[in-house]
Amino acid sequence: MADFDPQPGRAASEVAELSATQREADEAELYAGLRKVAGIVAGAQGVIDLLGDVAEFAVQAIPGADGVGVSLVDPWHDKPTVQTWAATAILVHEIDTAQYDELNEGPCITCMESRRPTVSGSLGSDSRWPHFGGRAARMRVHSALALPLIVGDQVIGSINAYAKNRDAFGDHAVQLGSQFARPAAISVYNAQLLASAQERTIRLQRALDSRAVIDQAIGIIRSRSGGTADEAFERLAQISQGENVKLHAVAQRLVEEAVRRAVARHR
């Protein structure tokens, strides 16, 4: 029996007892999706492209899913926000956007709060989300399976599967979806870490380059004025404030002018 939060008051049931052949086919689809997730190499593609692949692999791995979205938590706000970064269909993106941006309720939000898979077999009558459920039902989406993406003790997002049929996700789908979500979470998390490290490296390199140009500009001013380094820096700062131009840009301009004059003299 899969461990998940079902829809209150609605009996969890499969549409029909799955045959051994169907179960084997579903498990083969899951393992194919897992192999593809395992083959994702962080850094070989951007985070957005990686999330798109995860969504596509999830559709393959989760029985009954008509569309899947991958949402991530952005912790860098006063209140953490959730946003869908990849979806296999426009309809999925619209449904998830309604959850986060308009209604602040839905299976994705619930699964991240409970840290457990969340299932609904009839969204229009699901008492947990009176506003979201009706919105999804009017869009002819009746079933949902939300799987939290957890790394260690941190919830980093969720995989949200939707289906037009009612009761599309039973124990079997939850079990396979959960098996897929665990390694998918690690792949996404590693890609985020690498992207963050690369961004910090770029910022540091820019800062070092900026510092080098400013030091060159200070040297040029000192050679002309005979003043101290502090006096030269103060002169740069005055120009920057007076022209409302960044200090680095002022220094770069001064260095380039000095280079042009030196080249002209040699000619």
Rank of each mutant, 00 (worst) to 15 (best):
A264F: 06
E199I: 00
A197M: 02
Q83K: 15
S13C: 11
G170N: 07
A191N: 01
T118D: 12
I159P: 00
A44S: 15
T84D: 10
K36W: 06
P107Y: 01
G152W: 10
E17H: 10
A20P: 01
D171R: 00
Q175P: 00
D78C: 00
V151C: 05
Q192N: 02
V141R: 04
R23A: 11
F169T: 03
H248F: 08
Q179D: 10
G219C: 09
A86E: 02
S187M: 12
A25W: 10
E102Q: 15
G177A: 12
V68L: 07
I150F: 07
R10H: 09
L30E: 01
G46D: 09
A195E: 15
S240D: 08
H131T: 02
N190Y: 04
A146F: 03
K79W: 12
R138A: 13
G69A: 15
P183K: 00
A264V: 05
F4G: 02
Y189G: 00
S210H: 07
L147N: 05
S210C: 00
K246F: 04
L50M: 08
D53V: 15
M112L: 07
D230H: 12
G227A: 11
G177I: 14
V47R: 10
V245W: 07
T81E: 14
D74S: 06
D5G: 03
A32T: 12
E27I: 00
G39Y: 04
F180Q: 01
P183E: 05
P75N: 06
V119I: 09
P8D: 02
L51E: 14
G157I: 10
E56I: 10
A173K: 06
G219I: 12
I239S: 08
I95Q: 08
T81Q: 11
A184F: 07
W129T: 01
D5M: 13
P130D: 01
P6T: 02
S13W: 05
Q252A: 14
T88Y: 04
D215Y: 04
V47F: 13
A65W: 06
I62R: 02
A237H: 13
D26E: 14
L103T: 02
E24N: 00
L123G: 12
A229G: 02
S143Q: 03
G124T: 01
E105C: 00
G9K: 04
K79D: 15
A161L: 03
I109M: 15
S210R: 10
V263C: 05
Q179A: 12
P63Y: 06
L103D: 05
Y189N: 06
H142F: 15
R265C: 02
V70G: 08
R182C: 09
A217R: 08
A229D: 03
A65M: 05
Q60N: 12
Q241F: 10
S225A: 07
K36M: 11
V213D: 09
R203Q: 14
I214K: 09
